[in-house]
Amino acid sequence: AEKWDMPMAYSASNFHSENGMAFAKCVTDGTSGDIEITVHPGGSLIAGADIKRAIQTGQVQLGERLLSGHQNENAMFGFDSIPFLAPSFDDSAALWKAAKPKIEELLAEQNLTLLYNVPWPPQGLYFKKDVNSVEDMKGVKFRSYNNATSRLAELTGMLPVTIEAAELSQAFATGVAESMISSGATGYDQKVWESLTNFYEVDAWLPRNYIMVNSDIWSDVSDANKGVITTCATEAEARGLQASKDYTQFTYDGLRDGGMKVEAASEELMTGLRAVGDTMTSEWLESAGDDGKAIVDSYKSMQ
């Protein structure tokens, strides 16, 4: 029997982690204990940012990572986080279908084999006031955490402020930041209704968490066990997608119960944001080159 360690970045009660634990149990049971997977949620074994490298170098056998976190390394990893390119669960699925071969190829070069992936709920905009157009966003202090969110702030006339995740709640409470782009889940988990008032369902993008296994370790797995793991992964992917959809609604209700206004963005705001999205898509294409263009073209042909 082998023991596999599976670090995950988000807290044990997060739906990604619960799904991962169900996957681990499925593999452990399905292989009759041949491969026993222990899940380490909440970055308790390895912090999120280091999980990819830990799998690559064989420190752990498998793990979960938000690949768009690695877009500095390769712009292709950011394909799932281009604002307003694929703004719904269905669009996101189509985009993934278009990107899958390229991403799997890229991961294979890094000694990684993809098992399954699950999208986060769609990203919406949080504010401390009513916002009906891009004009209204001018001068708002916006929490940015990477180049794309900084650029988004710049293009909408907001002031990007860098706040680390650990200080997010305090930053909102004290007015260091007044706005952010994130899923309903983040706002719900962080209880942002204590400081923020409005959530707009702009469905900017649906970033994905990828569960990957070290390719050397994968190639040593018996065919029977590979079959079990693949089946479990397929189930986990479907289950995770459903959980993500259910959770989206749940968190919107939660934000409402907390006292926030949760609503779709006005047509005027959406038009302005889509223009920003077009700019950012073309900028991404510049850095992602032909491979990136192939993905976007293939995705657009499916529409």
Partner: peptide, 21 residues
């Protein structure tokens, strides 16, 4: 407050850090 321990705890269990403070 401010407290490093409360920040870590709040982030781990998804509770409001302001409230914890």
């Amino acid at each position: 407050p401010p407290s490093l321990a409360l920040i870590v705890y709040g982030v781990t269990v998804n509770e409001s850090i302001t409230k914890l403070f």
